Amino acid sequence: MTAIRDHRDREAFARLFGHFAPRVKGFLMKGGTEASVAEDCAQDVMVTVWNKAHLFDPSRASVATWVFTIARNRRIDLARRERRPEPEDLGWGPEPEVAQEDSVALQQETSHLGRALAELPDTQRELIEKCYFGDLSHREIADVTGLPLGTIKSRIRLALDKLRHAMG
C-alpha cells in the first residue's frame, strides 16, 4: 500500500486488487448485496483505494481495515440510495386539504419543536440542523466541522433524546 501511496505503483496495486477485490465482493454479498451489484461496488471500492491512496496512514489503520472501511461506507451509500423512492413512485398532484384543526395542531407542534431546538446547547443544535435540515451524513458533518465521528454521533443522539423528552 505504501508503494501505491508513495509511488503510484501499478504492479503493487494489481497485487492489492487481486487480494482485496474478491474479499470485498464477498463481504458485500454477506451483507445482502446482489452479486452483480457487489461486483460493481467492489470495483468502485478499489478505484477509491487507488484514488485516495495518498490518505492511507499505516499508523491509524491496517490496509485491510482501511479497504474494508471504504467498502462498508460504500455499502451504506448503496443502501441509502435503494431506500429513496424513484420519481415515478412519488405522488403527483396537489396534496389533499388538511383539516383546520390538524393545521393548528401542526403549527403548535412546529412552534413547540422550535422552542425545544432553541433550548439545546449550541453544539448539539448546530449538529441537528446540519443533519436534519442540511441533509448531511454524520461523516460529512465530521468532515465539515473537524470533529471526530464518534463525537458527532454522541451529540446528535443526546440532542434527539432531549428533543423527544421536550416533545413529550
Rank of each mutant, 00 (worst) to 15 (best):
R157F: 11
H165T: 08
P94W: 00
D6Q: 13
K52S: 15
G146D: 01
A118M: 06
T48A: 15
A38Q: 05
V37P: 00
Q108G: 05
E86M: 13
R23L: 13
W66G: 08
D102C: 02
A3W: 08
D77F: 09
F68P: 01
A64H: 08
K162Y: 00
Y132N: 03
R115T: 01
D122H: 00
G134T: 07
P58D: 13
E11V: 05
I76R: 11
T65D: 05
M46I: 07
T123V: 06
R23A: 09
I156V: 15
R80E: 14
A166K: 06
C41L: 15
T145V: 05
P121G: 04
A35M: 08
K130L: 12
H54P: 03
W92M: 05
L106P: 00
Q108D: 07
R74H: 12
A166N: 07
M29K: 11
A64Q: 12
I76Y: 06
A71E: 03
L90I: 11
E86A: 15
H165S: 06
L160G: 04
F17Q: 07
L28R: 02
D161A: 14
F13T: 09
L78Y: 04
T2L: 15
V104M: 07
F56Q: 06
G18T: 09
D44F: 00
I4C: 09
V24G: 03
L127M: 04
T33L: 15
L158I: 10
W92H: 10
R164L: 05
R125P: 01
P58I: 06
M29R: 13
I70D: 05
R84Y: 07
A71I: 05
F56E: 09
E39F: 10
